[in-house]
Design a protein around this nucleic acid. Structure first.
Length: 502
RNA sequence: GGCGACGUCGCCAAGUGGUAAGGCAGGGGCCUGCAAAGCCCUUAUCCCCGGUUCGAAUCCGGGCGUCGCCUCCA
């Protein structure tokens, strides 16, 4: 069983063989911290979080490096708009980025270097490039000479001549070639700047990834990831810089994620469909956002919308059902006996867990096919639900160990996808104070404790049902439903869960 | 103009040579006092045309359509 990955450089799926057995050296382009990250950024970071988690699950020791671009034109522009220091803007959104990633349950990188803390190393790489005659100095700027690197264009499938015939290249007659890009930019007044052999200035954007990856992972590391809009020019330029400077291949496998659209259009502020991750997470649990994104292969385009979030919410409920149903049955053993499970039924349960795990791994091994992996989990859900429906946990809970095993497989594999069923779905009941009024009205309750009031209501409903007084029973249920609770009559009695509006 | 991707059930979406996963929605049934949840059953031959093959959604050619990149972009 080997893992296969789609490599942008070769445009094919290849067997994944690491530089060092058992160890993955992985770099993913991080954010430019000039604003809160949007939902499209989130997709990319989520994609590589899942890849990283899966590789770890498959036994690799994953060293995961992700930069923070904290000096850049956009940060400077934002700071100027808000009349404050670029470093302050960068600090604010660096913090916001970390919080957002944490909220989305994206694991922290092994190392997360900042551009501003890597300036000396960047200067050193520029010097190497100048020495090797791949870069040249003009008035305090340093440019990379695209024509000096024969492989330029190999990642994005372009050649320099085609690119130049394309209409839009910036006009700057100080550059030897219009496609040459800046390694170092001389500082303009008011901009952040650092001393260098070429005068005060700041690094070009592409440089930091080359420098940081080499520092943290060495050359020819295993995986370089990012969204597909970075293929050209960013990653192309990284390859040029790194390979020109080291004479070694830069990266073994290039992985690129598909772009996200919102309401079937490219996300942009002018279209009014610009969604920030933090705003989405105010309305939907991280697990639902993750599930929605993981139902599409990472390289495909993904259309994001609240309708789809609502659908994903229901799919998520389905994944959680066996977990909560088993927990409920264990805490509240059924009053009546259910049908005993045959050996064959028990065997089916055992097999389903193994089958799900196998199918999950098979799908994920094939270029991280999360949609296929989820299908395997939904199959397991159905088997567990069917068993619980029919046999419950058995007399004296004798099926519990096997049910626990099946559910542990389910939650364990969901965890590989970073989809948490416990943390995101708090099942504890917190009753609003309106429950007390309802209990006074319908159950003759006279205290002031919400939980006791709720219990009184449920007891009154149970009594009413015993007396076949359906009107009274339904009044209680309707009252609680109006407060956002769902009442379900199970073989173990009535279960109340909070279900936020929607 | 150049480079590239995609077109699978009402919607979303896996599947890249051996006879169509899964989710959502819909229909029927079981369970329920009625519900809810769950379970069972149920809906496609894969944009069109041609070709290769014993056999194609899967390969090749053509057509139609949608989209992305080529400029900062996750």
């Amino acid at each position: 069983m080997t893992i296969r990955v789609h490599n942008t450089l070769t445009r094919t799926k290849e067997e994944f063989v690491t530089r060092e057995p058992g160890v993955v050296a992985m770099y993913v382009c991080g954010p430019t911290v000039y604003n809160h990250i949007h939902i499209g950024n989130a997709r990319t970071f989520l994609t590589f979080d899942v890849i990283r988690r899966y590789l770890t699950f498959r036994g690799y020791d994953v060293r995961f490096v992700q930069n923070i671009t904290d000096v850049d034109d956009k940060i400077i522009a934002r700071a100027a708009e808000e009349d404050r220091a670029p470093a302050e803007v960068a600090a604010e959104y660096t913090l916001a980025f970390r919080q957002a990633m944490s909220a989305l349950h994206v694991e922290r990188p092994t190392v997360a270097p900042k551009a501003t803390e890597t300036i000396p190393e960047m200067i050193a790489m520029i010097e190497r490039l100048i020495e090797r005659e791949h870069a040249y100095v003009v008035d305090g700027d340093v440019y990379f000479s695209v024509r000096s690197f024969p492989g330029y264009g190999k990642l994005s499938g372009r050649n320099v001549d085609d690119l130049e015939s394309g209409a839009r290249v910036d006009v700057d007659d100080r550059k030897r070639d219009p496609l040459d890009f800046a390694l170092w930019k001389a500082a303009k007044p008011g901009e952040p700047h650092w001393p260098s052999p070429w005068g005060e200035g700041r690094p070009g954007w592409h440089l930091e990834c080359s420098v940081m990856s080499e520092a943290e992972l060495g050359v020819t590391f295993d995986i370089h990831g990012g969204a597909s809009d970075l293929i050209f020019p960013h990653h192309e330029n990284e390859i040029a810089q790194s390979e020109a400077a080291t004479g070694q291949p830069f990266v073994r496998y290039w992985l690129h994620g598909g772009l996200l659209q919102v309401n079937a259009e490219k996300m942009s502020k002018s279209l009014g469909n610009f969604m920030l991750l933090k705003d989405v997470l105010e309305h939907y649990p991280a697990a639902v956002v993750r599930l929605l994104m993981l139902q599409t292969h990472y390289r495909s385009p993904l259309d994001f919308s609240t309708d789809r979030l609502d659908e994903a919410s229901r799919a998520y409920d389905r994944l959680v059902t066996p977990v909560r149903n088993l927990a409920w049955a264990k805490r509240n053993p059924p009053a009546r006996d259910l049908e005993p499970a045959s050996d064959r039924a028990l065997e089916t349960l055992d097999i389903a867990g193994d089958a799900a795990r196998e199918a999950f791994v098979e799908a994920m091994d094939d270029d991280f096919n999360t949609a296929g992996a989820l299908a395997a989990l939904f199959d397991l859900v159905r088997v567990v639900n069917a068993f619980l429906e029919r046999h419950g946990i058995g007399q004296s809970a004798r099926y519990v160990a096997r049910l626990d095993a099946a559910v542990a497989t389910l939650t364990g594999l969901l965890d590989v996808l970073g989809v948490s069923v416990e943390a995101d779905a708090p099942l504890q009941e917190e009753y609003p104070s309106a429950v007390i009024d309802l209990a006074r009205q319908l159950a003759g309750y006279e205290g002031t404790d919400t939980r006791a009031a709720a219990e009184a209501l449920l007891a009154a409903r149970a009594a009413a049902r015993t007396e076949r007084n359906w009107a009274a029973a339904d009044a209680v249920r309707d009252g609680l439903t109006g407060l956002g609770f769902v009442i379900e009559d199970t073989p173990s009695g009535a279960r109340v869960t909070f279900r936020p509006a929607g």
